[in-house]
Design a protein around this nucleic acid. Sequence first.
DNA 1: GTGGCCCTGTGA
DNA 2: TCACAGGGCCAC
Length: 290
Amino acid sequence: MPELPEVETIVRGLRPALTGRRILSLEVRRPGSVRHGLAPDALVRTLPGRTILAVRRRAKLAVLDLDGGLHLVFHLKMTGRLHLPGPEEAPDKHTHLTFTFEQDRNRSQDRLFFRDARTFGYCAALDDAALGVTAMDVASQAAWPFWRSLGPEPLETSPEILAARLEGRRGRIKALLLDQTVLAGVGNIYADEALFRARIHPAAPADALSREQREELMRQVQAVLQQGIDCCGASIRDYVNAHGDAGAFQACFQAYGRGGQPCVACGQPLRKITVAGRASVHCPACQPLP
DNA sequence: GTGGCCCTGTGA
DNA sequence: TCACAGGGCCAC
């Protein structure tokens, strides 16, 4: 569930608590939650003594940059959480990784929990080459394929350039918005919201849209992502930030999860269909098929 | 391009 | 009790 705005909110919450901290230890309570990079036992051996240099986001991934050219990449998928527990808080059955930091007189939290009820999420420990820190790394075979395949950041790319990535694509527009190689960070919520605001049917073939429509769609993608960040994310079901607080963007939903309810623009009931295997809510009147 | 799979908590 | 939620991956 955490999409770009939710991961951005989590990262912003973690940054002041974690930047500059030295790792004391890692406890791996569920080895399957460590994937793609170093094996769990190697990670447990190599982490103590390393310092967190930066906390950042790429697409829907949260990244801790460590000294020595190591990076911890977290994919939260649907139910993953990165959370700073209180001093008395014990790991529960869904807490798969617990990081402990050296005490810091200025900062009260000295642990980080990775929790994930549905275990789709993971932590990957990868080196500079795997993340393509230099241009040479990007071209090298050592690059982590998933990372290398990620498209541009939608909030750091112009709508025109984003729209140009749809050119000549025959797929349904919603499937392309969800395709992380086209643009990185949009999930089901923000795809439905952007399509509604751009008045484009989710099942419209991308090549049936005009250039103006594609650019307007990308402007709306940027607008809903920015609004999501400004609201500290959308909380439905599981999502909370690093401190356990809910977001507020769910109150701004105009399409997502509103099937059967009246369209905020025209009052007609919104329709729920399946596109690209995902529940998709749209207004048949405002978002006609081209 | 589509659909099944992974997995478990939630709500009808 | 069971359908449903869905990101990424894989086989079709």
